[in-house]
Design a protein around this nucleic acid. Structure first.
Lengths: 345, 345
DNA sequence: ATGAAAGCGCTAACAG
DNA sequence: CTGTTAGCGCTTTCAT
């Protein structure tokens, strides 16, 4: 039988570098070198230090470290969104997963900053500039003041999704144009000819880009642009219903709808059924986002999948490159989307 | 015309207390007092300092402050979950909203810690104990090692949702038992008599509690417990389908189902329709969570609403009380739920 | 009411 | 390869 354990180190106060040094019989500088992985340490000293670290349960004090290095080793995820729903969106959830996934293994912490009100934005800005190494910015609103102020402040920042024109920050986005294009191609391939679209808000880049993809696909096969086949929504199911009614009014023979979000697609299906159309027999419907509702809807929705988790990971990689200034970061990174075919088309 | 502005303060390096003191013509100590709202300062000095603070755009350096106060002024939101989906769940999203809402206006920052793998859990634990004032723990897994280790570590912690038996941490939860009870009462009120239930996993407190509520409501009206009317699911739609088949096998005349999650309710509806039942005419269905799918499902689902945002807010309040040790914190806080009646019942 | 001074725990020259 | 030393920016006695 062995003694059960070393005398339990009192947790009253975390061990310091000083204590580790004393136990290991070296100087603070040496301990610091070991802890920070410097090669300029004898293996003998290193072993002694490592043992002491374990024995004492030593963990560096970040505050002290950051005071001298002027780095906080933490990055912010800033959600600049007055509309609180955003947070509940699957897009955001997956984004966070990607971000935190990319951070695993690094010593970098993720600080969440929600800036709903105008007052909060101001706080966020001052906080960010003095306490974070960099930020990932999520904002669906065009002309978000934070977008420009953070840009001006000169703090490393990367935007999730293409920001509106005029913002000089690097961004990572899904290929919205390409995705929409593929969706419409798919509809054309199914023999549909009278294809309408329900766009997102046109002051938001994704809204704009998906409409662009729709038009490109049609233009590519020589279809002229018919304004009556465009109806604007706001990404919500209710707006999808309204838009579909409008579309049907203009062209009762519509045989397909490309909706710029799954929620709008659900609204479209609902309205189509109510109008006596069968989906997909009479009218095929394709959504965008490949969210849970696409799977659970009846019929299950064909939808464009965005690699959101990957976007999150890439966002972090770009940001960290910007922070360390190791290399010039790309102004834009566009990740591919793909179509998931289900029952609605 | 006035001069456009004071000479733009160079942002090369954030202003320090020292600089503010010089500009205001006082000592560092005085500036510190003003910044921290100490009353022992003449209004004259205070004015001078405040002006200098504004002029210099001064923001205290958290690292320096935390080094001396031994407080980090940040709390962690620890998601101890190997199952990555959790993050996408609406429950989690609303929780975060509540937490961050409660934090607005305070100087406290929210640090997000995801602990998927076992290795990460270890890191999280060490990180937490040395760099955070306290943590809010989200874990749906029974017997999560973090639950006990954080409890042992003596760091202030509060759990979202009732933890499994044996965990001594304070928690905040929705009234799952009461909610389920009300749901079943509602079904009884609609004249239903053959009411089955699809439970959640029985090793999870919410799964257990909702079943308890179901049984209580039935017992209250003298219905004996019929094991054949219990089917176990895992909160997913697919499990809801399977469970419903089992329920129908046992009792083809079933006229109502209480599902412990909206997703399972959706699965139930799907299976019922396939089996030739009309919802709600032949079989009424009630879900739990009042999530987006409850709204978008066809028919729209009657569901039990949990005050998740409030849970988040309360979590923070309890945690901060525990951190400052201002008062003994309640071991359990149970917030009321309510039924949202829609078309499925 | 205010200032002087002593660190908090750590890193980073700089010597040796 | 290692130790000494000088702060990083802030709070906090302790005098005054």
């Amino acid at each position: 039988v062995i003694a059960r354990q070393l005398p339990p180190v009192s947790r009253s106060r975390p061990a310091t570098l000083e204590e580790v040094a004393r136990v290991a019989g070296v100087s603070r500088a040496t301990v610091s070198r070991v802890v920070n992985g410097s090669p300029r340490v004898s293996s003998e000293a290193r072993r002694a230090v490592e043992a002491a670290v374990v024995r004492l349960g030593y963990a560096p004090n970040r505050a002290a470290r950051s005071l001298v290095t002027r780095r906080t080793d933490s990055i912010g995820l800033v959600v600049a969104e007055s509309d609180e729903r955003v947070f509940g969106e699957p897009f955001f959830a997956s984004l966070v997963r990607g971000v935190s996934k990319e951070l695993t293994g690094s010593e970098i912490q993720l600080v969440l900053l929600l800036a709903h009100s105008a007052a909060e934005r101001a706080r966020v800005e001052s906080y960010v500039t003095s306490h974070l190494d960099g930020v990932v910015l999520v904002s669906t609103h065009a002309h978000d003041p934070l977008l420009v102020s953070l840009g001006d402040a000169g703090i490393p920042a990367v935007v999730a999704g293409r920001p509106p024109e005029g913002v000089a920050l690097p961004y990572v986005d899904a290929d919205n144009v390409g995705g929409a294009c593929v969706a419409v191609d798919h509809l054309l391939g199914r023999g549909r000819t009278r294809i309408g679209t329900i766009t997102g808000p046109l002051d938001m880049p994704p809204g704009l880009d998906r409409r662009t993809g729709y038009r490109q696909a049609l233009a590519a096969v020589g279809r002229p642009h018919d304004p009556g086949r465009d109806a604007t929504g706001d990404f919500s199911a209710a707006s999808g219903e309204r838009a579909t009614s409008a579309l049907l009014d203009h062209d009762p023979d519509l045989d397909a709808i490309f909706a710029a979000s799954d929620l709008m697609a659900v609204g479209a299906v609902r309205t189509l059924i109510r109008a006596g159309r069968r989906v997909p027999d009479d009218v095929a419907v394709v959504g965008f986002d490949d969210s849970v509702v696409a799977e659970t809807a009846t019929p299950a929705l064909t939808s464009v999948h965005q690699p959101v988790v990957d976007i999150g990971r890439r966002l972090v990689r770009v940001l960290l490159d910007a922070v360390t200034a190791e290399r010039r970061v790309p102004a834009a990174t566009v990740l591919p989307t793909h179509l998931v075919v289900r029952d609605s088309s």
